[in-house]
């Protein structure tokens, strides 16, 4: 047992003991032997190859096929990639759509816009909650209890959470009843629901937990002694946040943002239920083309969405080097 592990633990995770030098060496030796490692990763590899790599490769292959009136036909066609990017009048000075990207790129753009807004709001809402849980709540059992409380919405189905906004924000919803009752408005306001406002709010409510969790874990790992030391040296709370807490919680922020980014760019259900289908998302476009059995074009859309996701994740990881920070 290392001496470090006798250090006081605060919070859910607390300060981590330094790994025992001998154990690390043993682990390295074990890895070099290779045998156990192969068996450990085999199930995951088989699983991922069967259910991730194979479907993914099929999507790539499908995206080059042709969609004839007789159904799908294997080919190497770039037709649907052209369709994705090309729009009539693009870069044609005579046309009124000069420099207007194709509807599919615009849809992807609006999907990313809603995603970024939601990420920002989730950060603004989620960070203080995580901070409160990790820094202000001292007793471990309360931390756990409050953290579980944050998870309560996940106990019901996703769809129910989305639908439940209607009795709250709808024309005959609670808020409208209240506004009418207080005489603030004389007829129900409709901007609350089936609107950009309602849509963004629902997304934030549904996904904010994904930012609270990782940020909370990052914050809980910060050694309280460091903060105490800074205070003793005369640092102001703002300085402490800027120099210590902020930077040390960045990995949690980055992981939370990646979760939310990936979830919302692929999202289509909330747009239908809460926004009343009044916008297209990259996900609904894929569904629409799946619906008319134009699988190659659905595949092209899916690949472009995935490409956007990969770029987004790379950008987030560029800003925060998770490996270095963890």
């Amino acid at each position: 047992m290392s001496k470090v592990s006798e250090l006081h633990h605060t919070g859910l995770i607390g300060s981590q003991p330094e790994p025992d030098e001998a154990a690390v060496q043993a682990k390295i030796r074990h890895t070099e032997e290779g045998f156990a490692t192969v068996w450990l990763i085999t199930p995951a590899t088989i699983w991922l190859v069967l259910f991730l790599v194979v479907p993914l490769v099929s999507i790539v292959i499908f995206s080059f096929w042709e969609n004839t009136p007789q159904g799908l036909s294997p080919a190497f066609s770039l037709e649907f990639y052209g369709e994705y990017f090309y729009t009539k009048g693009f870069f044609d000075p005579e046309a009124d759509r000069f420099l207007l990207p194709s509807v599919f790129i615009r849809t992807l753009g609006s999907t990313l816009y809603f995603t970024l807004v939601t990420m920002l709001l989730c950060l603004i809402v989620g960070y203080p909650i995580a901070y409160f849980l990790a820094m202000q709540v001292q007793a471990f059992k309360w931390q756990l209890a409050l953290f579980l409380l944050c998870m309560v919405p996940f106990w019901t189905s996703y769809l129910i959470r989305a639908v439940a906004w209607l009795p709250m924000l709808g024309r005959r919803g609670l808020i409208n009843q209240a506004l009418l009752g207080m005489g603030i408005v004389d007829k129900p306001v409709s901007f609350l629901f089936y609107s950009e406002f309602g849509y963004t709010m629902a997304l934030v409510q549904i996904y904010v937990v994904l930012s609270i969790g990782p940020i909370f874990f990052s914050l809980a790992k910060i050694d309280k002694d460091i903060i105490e030391a800074a205070t003793d040296m005369g640092a102001t709370p703002f300085q402490i946040f800027r120099e210590i807490i902020g930077p040390m919680s960045l990995p949690g922020v980055a992981i939370g943002m990646i979760f939310i980014f990936v979830m919302i760019t692929g999202e289509f259900a909330t747009a239908v239920v809460v926004y009343g289908g009044k916008t297209s998302t990259a996900g609904t476009v894929i569904l629409n083309y799946y619906g008319i059995a134009n699988y190659p074009f659905a595949a092209v859309n899916a690949l472009m969405l995935m490409l956007a996701m990969v770029i987004g994740i790379i950008v987030i990881l560029r800003i925060v080097d998770i490996r270095k920070e963890l």
Binding site: V163, L166, G170, R172, S190, Y194, V272, V273, G276, G277
Partner: peptide
């Protein structure tokens, strides 16, 4: 006000007075 896709959504829209 909205675009509906499933039977249930159309019922909801009418029942809720939207």
């Amino acid at each position: 006000r909205a675009f509906w896709e499933t039977f249930g959504q159309s019922v909801n829209l009418m029942v809720s007075g939207e």
